[in-house]
Each structure stands twice: as C-alpha cells, then as structure tokens.
Write a protein that binds this DNA or RNA. Sequence first.
DNA 1: CTCTGAATGGTCAAAGAAGGTCAAAGGCGG
DNA 2: CCGCCTTTGACCTTCTTTGACCATTCAGAG
Lengths: 163, 163
Amino acid sequence: MSLSNAIERYLLQLLERARGGAVEIQRNALSEIFGCSPSQINYVLETRFTAARGFLVESRRGSSGFVRIVRLGAPRRVVELLDACVGDHIGQEESLHLIERLKTSGWLSAREAAMLAAAVRRECLAIPLPERDRLRARLIRAMVLSLARSDRDLVPGGEKDAL
Amino acid sequence: MSLSNAIERYLLQLLERARGGAVEIQRNALSEIFGCSPSQINYVLETRFTAARGFLVESRRGSSGFVRIVRLGAPRRVVELLDACVGDHIGQEESLHLIERLKTSGWLSAREAAMLAAAVRRECLAIPLPERDRLRARLIRAMVLSLARSDRDLVPGGEKDAL
DNA sequence: CTCTGAATGGTCAAAGAAGGTCAAAGGCGG
DNA sequence: CCGCCTTTGACCTTCTTTGACCATTCAGAG
C-alpha cells in the first residue's frame, strides 16, 4: 500500500465518521502523522479528492489555517457535470471516476457504466495523445447526452435531475 | 518447456487458487522469480492472457504499481457475431445496422443502443479514415464485450460459456 | 493604524519507482 | 534456409514522493 493510498483511506475514514460530510484538517499535522512531506498531502488531495470523485476542497493559510474536505451531494444536472469534469479533453482515470459517479448517482446502470468504461480505455481508443484525450471527451459527451435524448424520446416529460 | 510456458502455467496456477478469478502481481518481482527480463512478462501477458482467450489485464505504474489478471467469460454467440460483422474495421452505416440487430434481438436496451450509436458516429470519432473505421471496430467490440462481463458480474452463478 | 514575523498552506520541478514498447537477436521446426 | 515464436535490452510513460521556494493570515509591536 502506497503512502498516498494510506492517506486517502485515513481521510475517507474521517469523512465517514464526521457527520455533515465534511472534515477539517491541518496539513502539517497530517503530514507528521504519516511522516511525509506536507506537499504529499496536496498530492493526495489533488489526485483523490477531486470534483470528478465528488469532493470539494477548501483551505486557508496563516495562523489557524486549515484544509476542509467536503463530500458533495449530486450536482444538479449532468450537463453541468460534463462541462465541469470533461471539457474538451479528459484522461482515462478521471473518466472512470466520472463514470463511477454517474453510476452511483443513478444516471447510469451497471451495464451502461461498463460500456462507457470499456470505451474510454486507452487500449480501446488506441490513438496517440493528445488527440486520444480529446476523442475520449467527445465519446463521453456523445454517449451520456445520447442517454438524455433517448430518455426524452421514451419518457416525454422525463426531467432527470439526479446528479 | 519454454520460459513463456512456465510463466503462463505459474500464472494460471495463481488464478486457479485465487477466488474471484483474478490475481495481482508485480511485474519486476515476477521477472526475478523466473530470472528473466521484465518485458518477458509482458510478452506472456500479450500472447497468453488475451481477450480472445478470455482474460483481461489491467495495470498501474509508479510506486506500488501492479498487474492484475482477470479471467472472464463471454457468450459465444455475440463473439461470433462480432467476428462476423465487425472484423478489424467497420463503417458507420454497417455499425448502425449491427446495433439495431443487437437491440432487436434483446442484447441491447434502447439506451445502450443509443449510446453505442452515438459513439460510432463519424462526427463523434472525428479522426481521418481509414483509422476511423478501425477505431469504430475497437469501440464496438470493447463495449459489447464489456456488457457480457458486466452481466457475469451481476448474476451470481452467471458462468456464461467461456468464449 | 501600520509594519513585521511566525505560522500556515500552495506550487512546481526533479528524483524515484513501477510498468510499457519496440526492434533486434536468438532458437527451432519445416 | 526460411519463418515464426521467444527473449532481451534500451528507452518511454505514468504515478509517487520530496524539497526548495512562494503566498496568505493574523497577532503583536511600534
């Protein structure tokens, strides 16, 4: 188990216990618990507690500074999520997190999520970067939005607002 | 007995013992066990643990990286259909017919078919021919086969025939 | 009120630690 | 001898960890 994974699990535990879905930590104190450099904490926050995984991180410097990690509820609309997470290019790992999130929030079934996940794998796309990341973004947008349309066609009033 | 075959048998044994049909190894550690170059492991994975033989290989680099080998099953009929219709490249119109066929025969739901149809459109792929037709073939294969696997994962006793 | 320094957290580039790719060399059966 | 399957090694990409240096806050001194 890597340091980053250990820190991630530790923070997830804190979030688990904390009522309200948010925790506040001190970067330096946490880094001492794990005997690592303070910037290691930033690395974990940047790679694990991202918007794509449904977290918001706020912080403040100076005396009595802090780092607050908030577990976000589902965003209002999928389009916003796409705009926020996908942009015009997106990497594989980020995509998989997004897909997982769309699944757990009920927007995608397990089968649909599996399809999407299979499609965005770099072994499947198999074209060189950076065009690969752009293609991946187009695919996710096209497929997810196609669901919105397909639902609208099937259910005339279907205003899915999960996410 | 060649090195490759020895490594293959070793990994198959690991898979045999491991419940869940998956094992994780470290490429460098394994190569040291067999006293060979690390890339030899890749060779074995590429030639023996292929999708065609019913395996999925995932990996991660960097500290505490790993290689995971998953044994999976896929229904025979769909595989045959893919081989027959898709090949290593396929055009848009042909794809849409295939998707329609998979839908009417019950393999795909309306939503899944819509997703696939959106993915294979040339406006979405947006790369030049002839690579576009090959990418389209890879996408269809990956997505349809992923469904077979996701079904197997969902149904407790789902030992669909082994491809 | 303003200035200043200690206490925090942030950034970024480089080094370290896996695994991946590819082409060339090595063997072996036909 | 030819062609296919193996094996290897040099070089590449990705993920992690660290450290030097930067930015922000706030309490207290002047």
